[in-house]
Every structure is written in C-alpha cells, then in structure tokens.
Amino acid sequence: MADGQLRIGALYPNEMNIYADRGNIAVLTARCRWRGIEATVTALGLGDEIDSDAFDLFYLGGGQDDDQRRCAEDLVAVKKEALTAASQRGAVLLGVCGGYQLFGHWYELEDERIEGLGLLDVETVRAPGARLIGNIAIELDGGDGDPGGILAGFENHGGRTLLRPGATPLGRVLKGHGNDGSSGFEGCRSAHTIGTYLHGPLLPANAWFADWLIQMAVGEAQSLPQLDDDLEELAHADALKAAGL
C-alpha cells in the first residue's frame, strides 16, 4: 500500500455494474476523502492487464449473463495471475453478486460450466426454482479477524453458491436466502478476499463494513477517525427494518 492512499481497481465497471455497484465505490472514496486519505479509482476493463502491486483494493460487481461470461473469460485469460498474487499479498478483493460467483472455482450458466478465479473455495450451480430475491440480513460472527456485526442489503441471484468443505462463510443468514437458500450461510471469506450476494448497495447500507475494508486495505498503521455517521446509521437501521429485523 502507499501512504495515506487507497488505490481502488474497479474491475469491468462498464459490464459489471447492474446493481448500482457505483454506490460501493462512492462510499469507499468519500469515506477516505473525508479523512484526508487520497482515494483513486482505476477502471480495469476487458483486455486490460493489471499490475498486481498497483492497487490496495479490487472491486468486482454484478452483470447480465452475456457480460458476465465475457468478463469470466477475460479474468481467467488476462487477470488471474495478478489478482491471485494481490490476494496472497493481502490486498482486499470484494466481489458482489456476479463478482462473488467469479471469485469461485466455476459457475454454471444454462448447461455450461464457466471457469472463475478460484480465489474463494466455492462453486455456483443452477437449481430448479425461482431466483432468490429480497431483502436480507446476515450476521458476521466476529471470528477470524472479522469485526462482527450485522450486514443488511438486497439479494437477487439465480445461482446457488456452495461452500466447499472448510470454506468460511462471510456470515450467517438472519433474514433472506443467502448462498443457496438452504444452508443458512451467506458469502464467503478467505483472509482479505470477500464474496457476497448483498447489494443495496452493500457499503452505503453498511458504512461500518466499508470502514473495515478500508482499514484492511490501507493497513492498521493508518488511523481512521470516526466520521459523522448519523445518516449512515439511519440508512443501516432502515435496511435492517426492510429485511424484517
């Protein structure tokens, strides 16, 4: 990481943005700026090669089926090595919805199995039944260095994501469907690499979680002063209420 700086690599912002993923980036950059930390956002599109050391945080959002397939191919062909190195080095990688699926080993699209990055020990299958749609709340248990707390958001996914044995979920479902609608788990985390189905978007509705990601990305040495979060807390409470909590 660079001093007093958060360098965000936004993966495929033109293709993978359908659930208002811009909101997540806006929250990360504003909360850095308000604390005097310079935040830069670099778009990493189809065909772009990545310098694995040039970013502290990578973000990958959700897309339509065709776009997600093209991005999957590009990820594996062009970016896999750099993103794997970044993940091992401790950079933060956040994948939401389709981005979460692409962080796993593979996902199914119709009858096809499409290879992902394999950064998270999950796979995503298609199952008969409706898309899993609705408000959702999950609880992080505070283990393994996560800060503990409740995340609220909205989920909308056809794929069912299965944790392989030993994989750590991001949280436990309090309200909503989660990874597969039945396991009671939501998301997956491996060190600083995180995948989740929660949008809403995720970070506006859960500013505390955004701060945790920023802290991991810029390093423990950087202090993050408390901000005036009155509106953030109201919005978080509102999202929890929408989920039925």
Partner: peptide
C-alpha cells in the same frame, strides 16, 4: 421495485 439500489445509479 423492492430494491432501492437504483438510486445509486
């Protein structure tokens, strides 16, 4: 639309 995400777009 039950999902209010769109306001961020």
């Amino acid at each position: 639309g039950r999902d209010v995400s769109w306001i961020w777009d």
